[in-house]
């Protein structure tokens, strides 16, 4: 199973590790955290391969990663400009 840039299984393993880190966060923060990490640290071809795998059923992806990758897919394909910038600091007390 080969993607354009890196073996998909490797991407699944990497994404699941990211999911494990964000697991203790509240569901909305968790999904956003995973999305932002993928968006700002992964080459777009890696992201595209992951989303293609998600579209194909997402076998092997943890529930946390599925939620985060779904947010990423929405952003990549429908509202790219809205999140093009870097993660912003949260307001004080947040």
């Amino acid at each position: 199973m080969t993607s354009a840039v890196i073996e998909v299984q490797k991407l699944i393993d990497m994404a699941n590790q990211i999911g494990e880190f964000f697991a203790p966060y509240a569901p909305d923060q968790r999904a956003e955290g995973i999305r932002n990490h993928l968006r700002h640290y992964w080459d777009p071809r890696m992201r595209e391969a992951l989303l293609h795998h998600l579209d194909s059923g997402g076998e092997g992806l943890s529930p946390e990663v599925r939620a985060g990758a779904t947010l990423l897919r929405d952003a990549e394909r429908t509202a790219k400009q809205a999140y093009a910038g870097p993660p912003r600091p949260r307001p004080a007390g947040a």
Partner: peptide, 20 residues
């Protein structure tokens, strides 16, 4: 380029698929 590039280990991974 407005997008992140490949990390060093990913460059080697991508070499094995012919992308790098």
């Amino acid at each position: 380029d407005a997008e992140p590039g490949l990390r060093l280990p990913n460059m080697f991974d991508a070499a094995l698929t012919g992308a790098f």
